[in-house]
């Protein structure tokens, strides 16, 4: 059945989780971080994964990004079963098709804002000239013009998250996975980061899947998937 779902040509989904479970073993205790969960994310969506701490949000995002491997079930990204790929292939997918934003400490400390944003482009082998135009365009878009040469420790938390977002989208990925991107900043900064993500979603059609447990943040999403104990509690699309 999962194969049939994956091959259904009508659906424009970018991410598909089919009966996915993740069980962590700590000695004799089993923790079901994700429990038989199925989920699809459509291209161009702006989707929030909500739920209290420990509900399995991070685990879901990590499995979508190939950072974690499900105990049962399948994860498809752009219709490719991640389990069928090698470590190197998954790394290449992360490099080319996924943008990651974490809660904090996203940036490589020894590199400037510019170099951080440029890093993945360089990994992709993009030419220096093109790197420059693309990075400058993105830095402008995220409002960091003038801060190109700052190192992470010379920037505020909000500025750092902007660099992280810039780095996530500069490669024009299929999807940006953001794990509690606003958890470490004040609410005004959180608002402006959400404004930015929303703008990138609307203007450039980038799919966003972000996790949060902040009510104000989840209200900005088009679709809200609520989780509890590793399961989906509710899944609604807002007007």
């Amino acid at each position: 059945m999962s194969q049939a779902l994956a091959n259904d040509p009508k659906r424009e989904d970018i991410v598909r989780l089919v009966d996915v479970s993740k069980i962590y073993r700590q000695g004799k205790i089993e923790v079901r971080a994700v429990d038989n969960l199925s989920l699809e994310i459509d291209t161009g969506d702006f989707c929030a994964l909500c739920g209290p701490s420990g509900s399995g949000k991070t685990t879901v995002l990590n499995m979508i990004g190939g950072l974690d491997i499900p105990t049962h079930g399948q994860v498809f990204l752009e219709r490719r079963d991640l389990a069928s790929l090698s470590r190197g292939e998954v790394a290449a997918i992360r490099r080319d098709r996924i943008g990651f934003v974490f809660q904090a400490y996203n940036l490589i400390p020894v590199m400037t804002a510019y170099e951080n944003a440029e890093f993945v482009l360089k990994l992709q082998g993009v030419s220096a000239v093109e790197c420059h135009t693309r990075v400058m365009t993105i830095l402008k878009e995220v409002g960091l013009v003038g801060l190109e040469h700052r190192r992470p420790d010379e920037m505020s938390g909000g500025q750092q998250q902007r660099v992280a977002i810039a780095r996530a989208i500069v490669t024009r990925p299929a999807i940006v996975l953001a794990d509690e991107p606003t958890a470490n900043v004040d609410s005004a900064t959180a608002d402006s980061l959400l404004d930015l993500m929303q703008k990138l979603n609307r203007q450039d059609g980038i799919t966003f899947l972000f996790s949060t447990h902040d009510k104000r943040v989840m209200d900005r999403a088009r679709r809200i998937v609520r989780m509890r104990d590793g399961r989906i509690e509710s899944d609604e699309v807002q007007g």
Partner: peptide
């Protein structure tokens, strides 16, 4: 480890 985790997450291969 965390820094390397981020680097791997954004697409650096383990080999690199």
């Amino acid at each position: 480890t965390r820094e390397f985790g981020v680097m791997l997450a954004i697409g650096l291969s383990p080999k690199r």
